[in-house]
Design a binder for these strands. Structure first.
Lengths: 199, 199
DNA sequence: AATTTTGTCTAACGCTGTTAAATTATTTAA
DNA sequence: TTAAATAATTTAACAGCGTTAGACAAAATT
């Protein structure tokens, strides 16, 4: 009776293949070029089969969004874990965010840029895995506040997030600006905001 | 023989109507719902007629992008003109940018958010009408630098732009955060960066 | 071995941007 | 005023899209 499980495993496998195929297509041709028929081609099936695994195209994008957030959370946690000093933790974690946005540009675009997906970020993810959940901890500590949901923490978090997401968006859209200048802005802004946490 | 001109005027008029129709549809139903056939319906023609006025759909979007930048430039200039103090000018001009993004959300989305349009912003617009051209002037003055293209000015400009564009993007995507907190972040960030211009 | 269930595909619908050809209306020339 | 030429507009079509229903074959169950 292990055949039931074998089949189940095969189905799970195909579910994953669909996601991988979609990601590949997007990396090669961009989000605009992603179509159900192309995904089907890549996994060597016909298009309607996909609807056996996902309700529709949007569901696939949502699942990819989720994967993106998971990946981002990993990178940020790893980066923070390599420092003990809180200021360094904050800088490292935001640098990881920055790097993720460009190394996994397709994910980042899906997560924040292109569409209105992901707006329900908080409901979508398990507790402790949103950027907020991760970043708010050291921020609150520096500010000497216990509750990470405190409005003052929230405000500072948004200040960080804004400048970084802003810089990223600008750089995705206009590829002109030099990397050195961007890094400079980023570091300046981060240390600047961090200093302001103590007032 | 003024009929030639009359016809020319009519054609120019239709060109404008196409743009207006597109903008209306987007305001009612969003960018995703914009189609050539809907535009044609609205101007009481059939779809192929539009290709007599614009090469394709992208050309229409590009023209709308241009209009958006023009409008934004106006708002920013007006706002700055109402103050003599440079700090106040900067704050007013960025507040105008902020307001534009929400009052003309569709334009702003087209200009920065949704697609990869507009990336050639600089080549697209007449000199002196990009946000940079406008904002760099008072920034340079406060910094005591003559050349508005100076790297130091450029860096500070991007710092402003990033945090503002970031905040806006975040707010377009996640509608949760309260207006008061956003305003607070915005003002804090702006005055903060402005102070740093003098170091 | 017959029947049910499962997996997969073909065909189709209504939508999209876009083009070519046919048709109608308008202007010009005789 | 009528005939020819030009311009304006529409109809029909193509290839692609997301999606669904129905047919068909393979596998599992009875």
């Amino acid at each position: 009776m292990g055949s039931k499980e074998r089949i189940h495993r095969l189905k799970e496998n195909t579910r994953g293949n669909i996601l991988d195929a979609a990601h590949e297509i997007v990396k090669e041709e961009g989000w605009q070029a992603l179509s159900m028929r192309k995904i089907a081609d890549k996994i060597e099936y016909t298009a309607p089969i996909i609807y056996e695994y996902y309700a529709n195209k949007e569901a696939i994008l949502l699942e990819l969004t989720k994967k993106g957030f998971m990946l981002l959370a990993c990178r940020m946690k790893e980066a923070a874990a390599q420092h003990t000093d809180l200021d360094e933790q904050i800088e490292a974690l935001w640098l990881a965010y920055w790097n993720f946005a460009f190394e996994e540009k397709e994910y980042y675009q899906l997560m924040f840029g292109v569409e209105v997906n992901c707006c329900i970020m908080d409901e979508l993810l398990p507790a402790g895995t949103t950027p907020y959940d991760i970043a708010a901890v050291p921020i609150a500590k520096v500010m000497g506040i216990e509750d990470t949901e405190d409005d003052r923490v929230c405000t500072k978090y948004y200040t960080y997030w804004s400048i970084i997401h802003g810089l990223i968006s600008i750089n995705i859209v206009r590829k002109g600006t030099s990397d050195e200048i961007n890094r400079q802005i980023l570091k300046d802004a981060i240390t600047g905001i961090t200093r302001s946490l103590r007032n």
